[in-house]
Nucleic acid binder design. Structure first.
Lengths: 161, 161
DNA sequence: AGTGAAATGACCATAAT
DNA sequence: ATTATGGTCATTTCACT
């Protein structure tokens, strides 16, 4: 039922625009136009169209995790119990309410959920994991894997030609 | 040895700015100033300072993965072999060269690397995983976990008061 | 191309140290 | 007094029609 509205094919200009704004989200339209080799006016129209179509879903500042005091970054692997219908909605709400959750994915296979998390320190992480995650209704087990270093920092999707 | 230069404490205004730009990275300075209750000029000065200090590391447009034709999103768990010094640098280079890698983390514990990946379809994913990842020198084993749905879409860090 | 809005920098005010 | 904050205004640049 959720249908991909209309997949207008991307023009080469669109692709160039996407490549740039994915890396420099706050670039001015004037500078963007120059980079992609368009005049300002058509460049802005294309960017707006990409936003309109949801291809550009939004813009975010990327903040420095450590500078903000989050020493711990981890991925938490969650197994769920077989449970009543409706668990999903409630669980999503509860998870989204945890500020330390950066992202959460429902997965195929052994692990049911993969949760990307930050915490100020190990104590805070332990409190989150033990007292808040594990006690959620439907959660059977949690296992945590800690990030030692970021080899490839989060970056954009490839934009094929 | 890379030391956190100077941790200027964040003012309440800084925090408000960070909360906003993390969600609306392309907001105009004028609108940002209004939202955080500052005049345009000091607001811009603070934002620039936050960028200067690396607290704001950059800005990115968030693109729609499916709209761009990536049906597959997965996390690949990699185990490495004991290997010669210098493996790390070479491996990082090789990994970064793969466009389908959205992020890659060195992890503590059983799994050595966690790689966030997209692919157009299963064929493309298989080709990447089998022919390109697994054949990298030093890679002992890869296991893939596929994303079924995104429960909490990637969002910003919590900014405490 | 033109008009209104935004960005940017020079300068001032106030308060806390 | 110095430092750190915010404000006002004038000029340049940009967004958008």
């Amino acid at each position: 039922m959720p249908e991909d509205s209309d997949k207008r094919p991307l023009t080469p200009s669109d692709r160039r625009i996407l490549r740039v704004v994915q890396e420099e989200g706050r670039i001015t339209n004037a500078a963007l136009a120059e980079k992609v080799g368009l005049a300002a006016s058509p460049c802005l129209r294309r960017l707006k169209a990409l936003e309109e179509d949801g291809i550009v879903a939004g813009y975010r500042a990327v903040l420095d995790r450590k500078a903000l005091g989050y020493a711990i970054e981890a991925f938490v692997l969650v197994k769920l119990e077989q449970s009543e219908p409706g668990w999903r909605t409630r669980l999503i709400e509860r998870l989204n309410a945890f500020e330390e959750v950066l992202a959460c994915y429902a997965m195929a296979g052994e692990i049911d959920l993969l949760i990307h998390v930050v915490a100020q320190d190990m104590d805070a992480f332990g409190e989150f994991s033990m007292n808040r995650l594990l006690t959620l209704p439907g959660v059977a087990d949690v296992r945590s894997s800690f990030v030692l270093s970021t080899i490839t920092p989060p970056r954009g999707l490839p934009i094929p030609d």
